[in-house]
Design a protein around this nucleic acid. Structure first.
Length: 600
DNA sequence: TTCCCTTTGAAGATA
DNA sequence: TATCTTCAAAGGGAA
């Protein structure tokens, strides 16, 4: 298993994402990987064709100076990040020409981010470059807003580091990935911190000029008029780090530092005052950013001030969603806001959950899948993505697990008091219809919709992974085996039928009481070995079954005929052709007969 | 306008 | 401890 972090030292899920594949089916797994690799190659080819076609235009656009840095969304930053990942995935190695200014790497040697002289190692800087491109991106330097007071020392030796970036002892080496130089540029004057793109939980509610109320402690609340703690002019109200967390906050790369035996940064009082307090919000982060400053030089936030003001994308407008209590409490601890808890609660932003590995993958690959397929429904796209996720190699998935882990870590640092529970109830509760004692009316509600599987069109778009397995496209490697050890181990039945995309295990169906769609959650965690098919199950058409275990496609939703037709009857791209070829035998018998309606 | 669908994973809740 | 539930993204579709 790839141990990207060098093992140990990570209390936030270290080693949790990578677990060994199941022993059984190891051969198949390898075959699957080979097939997957070949498919990836095909993907690369097709994607390269597409990219080459569109790159000329996009490149020109990308090369234009960014003049709206303040509006650059963090989401985009993540997209760029994802793009880099995708390129890594496709090409495996850095393809710099297109995105010379945005290297990305998997920082295998970040375990030692500092050089002997205290400066960041090239790879560490490159990683920071990836994470906080505005800090040190020559490509973006030219894009920086002229008003940006970014100190020169922050505009660091990117070129040097880039030159130095190379493969390390790790077999995977240091990979730099080109990213579009559409780097989100910060307009500091508008209180958008360069670190804004650090995490892209959501950007829609981050208005540079109107940071969340709790993030601008020095200003009168426009609504309440309640004055807030002013901060020094040189301080930028950005990251909502809690004060308690500031002093003792772990380095964003603390998992790396710790591995190296270095302690978490403890910020001594009165020290270096960073011209960009927002950067110093995470003191060590700042120090990492600037190789000039060793970690211990970073100053703590001014008393009582949550020096952090970076509007985090994970924060959603309080008007829409309410902030969790824990976060509110944690914030109040240091915010000293006189705002009554009640009002404060109303204004609490909604802090979204950090994205997990699959979500990151999904965000990255969605556009690609959409481009390859004619499907537009996200449900169908997600099915494809789910399968592709399973088809990814361990290393490929490891990248996303690692990213997800970092996101969680950063998220936990940004919102120490936040809990996933805080977001409970923010959404409308889903129908709980998968309980064993579900009442008939539950199912009736559920089965009101026409059910059909996205399988046909998906088959046209998705990988030909099914060509080797008995479970259609199910790779020999279940996600459970790839997932973090924290995740419940998949049962044997699940391993045998890991994918619920085209052929959901009947056990699961039984478990979900014959629900056509995914019963609320539990898709990945529930494990049922029952293979009995309920009479109330949606009509199932066994297809592509080979092997002892019959597979039953779940017909969940009607396929848009346009998409179906387009996908099935006109596969124009090589990818489609390849997919068609690989699945021809599989679907030649019943390719288009999935539209049905469950009996009431 | 709101919810559903669909995926996997993380985390909290519950038995 | 094991299982279940909720939420994260996305966007078309349905109500």
């Amino acid at each position: 298993m790839p141990q990207l972090n060098g093992g140990g030292g990570d209390d936030l899920g270290a080693n949790d994402e990578m677990i060994s594949f199941k022993d059984e089916g190891e051969q198949e797994e390898k075959i699957s990987e080979n097939v997957s690799a070949e498919r990836d190659l095909d993907d690369v080819k097709s994607s390269l064709v597409n990219e080459s076609e569109s790159s000329s235009d996009s490149e020109q656009a990308e090369r234009r100076p960014q003049t709206r840095p303040d509006t650059e969304s963090y989401e985009k930053a993540r997209d760029y990040f994802s793009e880099a990942l995708r390129r890594q995935q496709d090409g495996g190695f850095f393809k710099s020409p297109h995105y010379p200014g945005y290297p990305f790497l998997m920082i295998p040697d970040l375990t030692n981010p500092y050089l002997s002289n205290g400066s960041l190692s090239p790879s560490a800087r490159t990683y920071l470059q990836m994470k906080w491109p505005l800090l040190d991106v020559p490509g973006s330097a030219g894009l920086k807003d002229s008003r940006s007071p970014t100190p020169g020392h922050l505009v660091s030796r990117y070129f040097l580091s880039k030159q130095q970036t190379r493969s390390g002892p790790n077999s995977r080496g240091v990979k730099a990935y080109g990213l579009s130089n559409k780097v989100p540029v910060v307009q500091h004057a508008h209180h958008v911190h360069p670190l804004t793109p650090l995490i892209t939980y959501s950007n829609e509610h981050f208005s540079p000029g109107t940071p969340p109320s709790h993030l601008s402690p020095e200003i009168l609340d426009p609504k309440t008029g309640i004055p807030r703690t002013p901060h020094p002019s040189e301080l930028s109200p950005y990251y909502p780090l809690s004060p308690g967390a500031v002093g003792s906050i772990a380095h964003p790369l603390g998992w790396l530092m710790q591995q190296q035996g270095q302690p978490m940064y403890s910020i001594p009082p009165g020290g270096f005052r960073h011209p960009y307090p927002a950067l110093a919000m995470n003191a060590s982060m700042s120090s990492l950013v600037s190789s000039r400053f060793s970690p211990h030089m970073v100053t703590p936030p001014p008393h009582g001030l949550h020096q952090t003001g970076i509007p985090h994308p994970a924060i959603v407008s309080p008007a829409i969603k309410q902030e969790p209590k824990q976060y509110k409490n944690a914030f109040n601890l240091h915010c000293k806001s006189p705002v009554p808890p009640k009002k404060e609660e109303d204004k609490r932003p909604h802090i979204k959950k950090p994205l997990n590995a699959f979500m990151l993958y999904m965000k990255e690959m969605r556009a690609k899948v959409v481009a390859e397929c004619t499907l537009k429904e996200s449900a169908a796209i997600n099915q494809i993505l789910g399968r592709r996720w399973h088809s990814l190699s361990r290393e490929e998935q490891a990248k996303y697990y690692e990213l997800a882990r970092k996101e969680r870590q950063l998220h936990s640092q940004l919102y120490p008091g936040w809990s996933a529970r805080d977001n409970y109830g923010k959404r409308k509760k889903r129908k709980r219809d998968n309980k064993p004692d579900s009442k008939p009316e539950d199912f009736s509600i559920r089965s009101k919709k026409q059910c059909v599987q996205y399988l046909p069109s998906e088959k046209m778009c998705d990988s030909p992974a099914s060509s080797h397995g008995s479970m259609l496209d199910s790779p020999a490697t279940p996600s459970a085996a790839l997932a973090s050890p924290a995740a419940p181990a998949a049962t044997h039945s699940e391993q045998a039928q890991p994918l619920s995309l085209t052929t959901k295990p009947e056990g699961r169906m039984h478990h979900h009481f014959s629900l056509a769609g995914k019963a609320s959650g539990s898709t990945s965690s529930s494990s049922s070995s029952s293979s009995s098919s309920s009479s109330s199950q949606p009509i199932s058409i066994p297809i592509g079954t080979s092997g002892s275990q019959p597979t039953t496609p779940i017909l969940t939703r009607p396929i848009p005929f346009a998409s179906l037709h387009h996908s099935m009857l006109s596969p124009p791209s090589p990818f489609h052709q390849a997919a068609l070829h690989s699945h021809h035998a599989l679907f030649q018998s019943q390719p288009l007969s999935l539209v049905t309606k469950p009996t009431e």
